[in-house]
Amino acid sequence: MPTEVAAALPSASFSGSARLSVWGFEVYDAQLWVAPGFQSARYADSAFVLELRYLRDFSRSDIARRSLVEMRRNASIPELQASAWQHLLEQAIPDVKKGDRITGIYQPQTRSARFLTNGRPTGEISDGDFARLFFGIWLSPQTSEPAMRKALLASNP
């Protein structure tokens, strides 16, 4: 278990992992750790940690822009809200290089998304709707990558 996972969620158990490839391009490897009692159908009710290890370089604006596209698969997000969230996400995560790790931590008590890059804190977005929809990119049944969701939730179907 990575140090940042143990620090954020000492009782976590490994749930699953997957690689995202788009049109033959490898994008990142994802790993999910969950708190005891985690239920995939109610993912926003339990603590978890999602780590993405990037396999290529991306700018923060590209990551934020794509995240909003994916978040909109789960809910209608007004343009003004989407723009505000994109800006907050661009502040919370840096540009990434191949091999960089972005770790997203979700705690239901704070209903926020906290981000670490290569183990160092880089930002937090304290908005429950943002956090639920952001992590829904991977954990919601409406994800654009159902096979990835299934692999991430392998131990917690």
Rank of each mutant, 00 (worst) to 15 (best):
M1Q: 04
M1K: 03
M1T: 11
T3Y: 01
E4M: 02
A6D: 04
A7T: 11
A7D: 08
A8H: 07
A8N: 06
L9Y: 13
P10I: 00
S13R: 15
F14W: 05
F14S: 08
G16K: 04
R19K: 12
R19F: 04
L20F: 06
V22K: 11
V22W: 05
F25W: 11
E26A: 14
V27C: 00
V27E: 01
Y28W: 02
Y28F: 13
D29C: 01
L32G: 08
L32Q: 07
W33Q: 02
A35E: 15
P36M: 03
F38E: 04
S40F: 10
S40W: 07
A41L: 04
R42A: 15
R42S: 15
A44V: 11
D45F: 10
D45Y: 06
D45E: 15
S46F: 15
A47V: 12
F48C: 10
E51T: 14
R53G: 04
R53M: 03
Y54T: 11
Y54K: 11
R56H: 09
D57S: 15
F58Y: 14
D62P: 05
I63A: 10
A64E: 06
A64Q: 10
E70Y: 04
M71C: 08
M71H: 01
R72K: 04
R72S: 12
N74T: 09
S76R: 05
I77Y: 01
I77F: 05
Q81T: 15
Q81G: 03
A82Q: 07
A82H: 09
S83M: 04
S83C: 05
A84H: 10
L88D: 14
L89E: 07
E90V: 09
Q91C: 06
Q91D: 05
Q91K: 12
P94L: 00
P94S: 02
K98T: 12
G99P: 01
R101G: 02
I102H: 01
I102K: 07
T103F: 01
G104K: 01
G104A: 00
I105C: 12
Q107S: 13
F115G: 11
F115I: 06
T117S: 12
T117A: 11
N118S: 08
G119K: 05
G119P: 13
G119E: 03
P121L: 02
T122H: 07
I125W: 06
D127V: 03
D127L: 02
D129Y: 02
F130D: 02
L133R: 12
F135E: 04
I137P: 09
L139R: 09
P141K: 05
E145K: 13
P146Y: 00
K150S: 15
A151Q: 14
A151N: 13
L153N: 13
L153T: 12
L153F: 10
L153M: 04
S155V: 07
S155F: 00
S155A: 15
S155R: 09
S155E: 13
N156P: 10
P157D: 02
